[in-house]
Amino acid sequence: MAQEATIQISCAQFEPRIGEKNANVEHSLALIETLAKDGSQLIVLPELCNSGYVLESREEAYDLAEDVATGETIDAWTKAAADRNVTLVAGFLERDGVKLYNSAIVIGPDGVIGTYRKTHLWAAEALFFERGDLGFPVFHTRFGRLGVLICYDGWFPEAWRLLALQGADIVCVPTNWVPMENQPGHLPAMANILCMGAAHSNSMVVAACDRVGTERDQPFIGQSVIVDHNGWPVAGPASKSEPELITARVDLSQARRQRNWNAFNQVVRDRRTDLYGEMLGTTAQPNWY
């Protein structure tokens, strides 16, 4: 399995419709086909893009949920990944027994690679979802090591750092960013700033795919972005209000090669693990070297 690669990454920013799962999935498949034909090898879709986001009841949530093994959305995306020879990271509403999760699936040409469950729930999500219980897994793909966060997870530096310490070259972020109070109009969205800071301070590529539109009175801010390992945007931010496909070519191997900022400083090595735990109290194993 090649662990160094220049790949083409895309984020498919669009507007899912609440409850219209079949239409949402069909639209996502059309976007995957378009991006794959254009040469993209890794495609990121928004958070809960098969179901919509603003749920009104647990009954509605259960009706829209599906499990990984038998879900029709997962089946459709798996076929698309195989047919188009791409890797997908996409948000979906997961059911595991009686529990519901705000999750993201990672699917390669050979099938499902793994699942991430949102760790930090935002606002009314707590009425419907369990907090993620899978930790911060890093998935091995044919082009490198891939981590996943979902939306509000990106506000926690511990989440980014734990992925970096496990060797993630890229972090994909399916998201439904909402307006932040007191956001200055002349500055980038806070979500974009957080992605840039995390990429820079951990030497990782970040691909964050948001949605647009207003759903049950909740507006979303778009501005999907792809950031290189130095922390600078290489695609986007996308439109604040319109669907948009953004694409960039990145060399993921540079995220490993260039963690040295100068002759003295290396972002992971310079941590003061004599003063705080190397893995921040988790049982994950470091794999950054």
Rank of each mutant, 00 (worst) to 15 (best):
P174H: 06
P174D: 05
T175C: 15
G231I: 04
L252W: 01
A159N: 14
H229M: 12
V173C: 12
Q223T: 07
R249K: 15
C172V: 12
W261Y: 14
E242C: 12
L163E: 03
D153S: 07
S203V: 12
S241K: 09
W232M: 14
M196G: 04
W177R: 12
T214I: 15
A198H: 11
G167F: 05
G185H: 08
V227M: 09
R216D: 08
N260E: 12
R257G: 05
L245Y: 04
V227D: 11
D169W: 01
R256K: 05
H186S: 13
P237G: 11
S241N: 09
K240M: 04
D228K: 06
H186P: 00
R211H: 01
G222S: 08
P157S: 05
N230R: 15
M196E: 03
M196D: 03
G222Y: 07
I170E: 00
G213Q: 07
D251C: 07
M190V: 08
D169G: 02
V234Q: 14
V225T: 13
A198L: 02
R249P: 00
I221F: 04
A189L: 10
A198C: 07
P157V: 03
R211K: 09
G167C: 11
Q223L: 10
C172G: 05
I193Q: 13
A207D: 01
G236Y: 10
R259W: 09
G154H: 04
G222R: 10
P233V: 14
C172T: 14
V148E: 01
R257F: 02
F156C: 03
C172A: 14
Q258Y: 04
G167I: 04
H186M: 11
P237R: 02
V212W: 10
V250S: 08
G222A: 10
V178T: 14
C172E: 08
L245D: 08
V171D: 08
W155C: 07
V234P: 14
D169E: 12
V206C: 03
V205T: 09
D217P: 04
V178Q: 12
N182I: 11
A235E: 11
A164C: 02
D217H: 10
M180N: 13
D228T: 11
G222K: 11
C209A: 06
H229V: 08
N192G: 08
T175I: 07
I150N: 12
L163H: 07
W177T: 09
C209G: 02
V205L: 01
G185C: 00
L162G: 00
L245S: 12
R257I: 02
M196T: 07
F156P: 00
N176S: 11
N260M: 14
P179T: 14
C209Y: 02
P157G: 00
T175W: 04
V178C: 11
Q254H: 09
D228R: 10
L194T: 06
I221H: 09
